[in-house]
């Protein structure tokens, strides 16, 4: 039935946008804070603001990309990349 499929599609996108988007934004804020050559407090503030700016566009991306598998793959890839940048021992 089309509606079941439609509903699961919406549910996955909502989850990807809110939870996945938040996770990516949080990782981005950490990655930026860790790699910016600034004093700790400056880098923390810059990272926090970047995360804040990133979340709404990520939420929109979750609904803009038509193909669901490509969307999930894209988020996973970006997440993996940012996780490496965030947790790479320096």
């Amino acid at each position: 039935m089309a509606t079941t499929r439609y509903r699961s599609d919406i549910a996955i996108r909502t989850l990807t946008g809110i939870a996945g988007g938040y996770l990516l934004a949080a990782l981005l804020s950490v990655a930026i804070a860790r790699w910016l050559p600034l004093p700790r407090i400056e880098a923390s503030a810059a990272g926090m603001l970047a995360g804040l700016l990133a979340w709404p566009p990520l939420m929109m991306t979750a609904f803009a990309i038509h193909s669901l598998p490509r969307l999930c793959a894209g988020f996973a890839l970006a997440g993996a990349l940012l996780a490496v940048l965030s947790f790479w021992p320096v």
Binding site: A33, R40, A46, L53
Partner: peptide, 21 residues
């Protein structure tokens, strides 16, 4: 809207400070 989120940002985006401090 954006600056409103900024005033509360340290509550829901504390991760950069957590990671560095």
């Amino acid at each position: 809207a954006f600056t409103g989120a900024v005033t509360l940002a340290s509550l829901f985006f504390p991760w950069s400070a957590t990671a560095l401090y």
